[in-house]
């Protein structure tokens, strides 16, 4: 079952190639911010699953909502002439690294528990 997300990613990439969708260059920055938000949400979901607090509704709504809001923020910033997208980049970037750090610790803790020999039975 664990290979399903990888398969999903490959399917998404394949669909992207086959669909051959080209967005105008002027909108590509919005998509970049949206992708950053999406990656952040995915990492948040993985972390939540490791901490056994995963909620699919929160995860899915967060994914779409964050993606859209990040792109919207970049668009509004562009219209106002203020680099508002930097706010999204910083917020998502910081959270992304925090989540990755927590995931790393969880993985290390899990692997060290497996390696540790079982206590002797009296």
């Amino acid at each position: 079952m664990i290979w399903l997300p990888v398969l999903g990613l490959l399917v998404g990439v394949a669909v992207g190639y086959v669909a051959n969708v080209h967005i105008p260059v002027m909108y590509s920055s919005y998509l970049s911010i949206a992708i950053l938000a999406a990656i952040d949400t995915v990492m948040g979901g993985v972390r939540a699953s490791l901490e056994r607090s995963f909620d699919s509704t929160v995860f899915l709504s967060g994914f779409f909502f964050n993606t859209l809001v990040a792109a919207l923020l970049a668009y509004i910033g562009n219209q106002l002439g203020v680099d508002l997208y930097l706010a999204a980049v910083v917020a998502f970037g910081v959270r992304l690294f925090q989540n990755i750090a927590v995931i790393r610790r969880h993985v290390f803790a899990k692997s060290s528990r497996r390696k540790r020999p079982a206590p002797p039975v009296a």
Binding site: G8, G12, V13, V15, L31, A34, I35, T41, V42, L60
Partner: peptide, 12 residues
């Protein structure tokens, strides 16, 4: 989500 992310990445 991975499928959507893959699609977005490819498009970008």
């Amino acid at each position: 989500v991975a499928a959507v992310l893959g699609f977005l990445l490819t498009v970008q």
